[in-house]
Design a binder for these strands. Structure first.
Length: 345
DNA sequence: AAAACGGGGAC
DNA sequence: GTCCCAGTTTT
């Protein structure tokens, strides 16, 4: 049996039942693929169910506001995915009459759709012979064929896509693509793959050479940056809270937060008191105190956010204030959501 | 070519 | 702590 035949055979016996596997509707496949980018199936699943419930068709998604979409996306991370999702939904709904492009090349033009996602949709929905190359596929191919090119180098990416093209089964592309990813996720796992009882263990180069634990090779990523966030939770006499929407570049674009004073190190109460006028128009706060006893370290892939929430009480009523209950309807970063959940007046 | 972009789960 | 997840876009 060939490599692809073994994969397809393994898949038929081991495939999980997943909600987006019962359809070839490009809308549902596209939605699931965007959600699953750099995201585990278990984490994406409830979001997928909620999106389909709220937006059964691409037109429903297109007609929603960006805030609604971001709110449903809250907690899933990489929020540009949600913004691009909405942009693409509007394009498909308004310009393409609800129809997705039916080729790899056409799909690649969509915002948020790169090589992997275009290949996935084209193969799952339209049977176009385009191999998917995701993290699972990199791992399976690098191990089985014993390739030590870094999977995140330009050369490596090109090599693995070409190799994937060579070994795929063009006639059963949907099952082959689903199969090799499922195989990577369940059998050829990153750590402790169960090689003893693997259908490929008689021909896997990495296994024969004892290189399972060093493949795939990956170039090291840049180190984490430390940042110091001071959120100013300004409460007026009616306990309305001032909120702002993050604009421009950087993390959490278009999500909501409190006025933010970022510093180069941790600041004390006195230092915050003396510098908060750089981000606030407040004249005379009546009371300031730190809400969280210990600094919260919110960890992102490449930043550690050392965060303090400062409660600032004021007599002045602010124009863009919202109640705590209203605030819960806004899309916010998990860091803010966790504060809201623990905050009591 | 490298950096930016989230959050969570497994070890 | 480290790694990495059904990657893409921007710099």
């Amino acid at each position: 049996m060939s490599f692809s035949q073994k994969i397809i055979h393994w898949y038929s016996a081991n495939k999980r039942s997943l909600p987006w596997r019962n359809t070839t509707d490009p809308y549902k496949i596209w939605l699931s693929e965007i959600m699953l980018q750099q995201t585990r199936v278990a984490q994406g699943m409830p979001y997928y169910e909620r999106f389909i419930e709220h937006f059964p068709t691409v037109h429903d998604l297109a007609n929603a506001s960006e805030e609604e979409v971001l709110k449903l996306w809250q907690g899933l991370g990489y929020y540009s995915r949600a913004r691009n999702l909405h942009t693409t939904a509007k394009l498909i709904s308004e310009k393409y009459n609800g129809h997705f492009p039916d080729t790899y090349k056409g799909l690649l033009e969509l915002k948020g759709v790169g090589d992997y996602t275009a290949s996935a949709i084209a193969s799952f929905c339209f049977k176009e012979a385009q191999p998917v190359v995701d993290g699972n596929v990199f791992r399976v191919l690098s191990r089985y064929f014993g390739i030590d090119l870094p999977i995140n180098s330009t050369e490596g990416i090109k090599y693995f896509k070409a190799l994937a093209l060579k070994v795929m089964d063009a006639d059963q592309i949907a099952d082959y693509n689903q199969g090799i990813m499922e195989f990577g996720a369940l059998q050829c796992a990153p750590k402790n793959p169960y090689c003893l009882h693997c259908p490929l263990n008689d021909s896997c180069v990495a296994l024969q050479k004892g290189k399972i634990d060093i493949l795939p090779v990956k170039l090291k990523k840049a180190k984490v940056k430390e940042r110091y966030f001071n959120y100013l939770v300004v409460l007026d006499k009616e306990n309305a809270i001032e909120i702002r929407q993050r604009r421009g570049r950087g993390i959490w674009q278009n999500l909501f937060e409190f006025p933010l004073l970022e510093t180069e190190r941790e600041y004390s109460l006195e230092e915050i008191t003396n510098t908060m006028d750089t981000v606030l128009e407040l004249k005379e706060p009546t009371e300031i105190y730190q809400f969280n006893e210990k600094t919260i370290v919110h960890k992102l892939s490449h930043q550690h956010l050392h965060t303090k929430f400062w409660i600032v009480k004021s007599e002045e009523k602010h124009s863009n204030g919202v109640s705590l209950e209203e605030l819960k309807e806004y899309p916010v970063p998990v860091l803010i959501a966790e504060f809201i959940n623990t905050f009591k007046f």
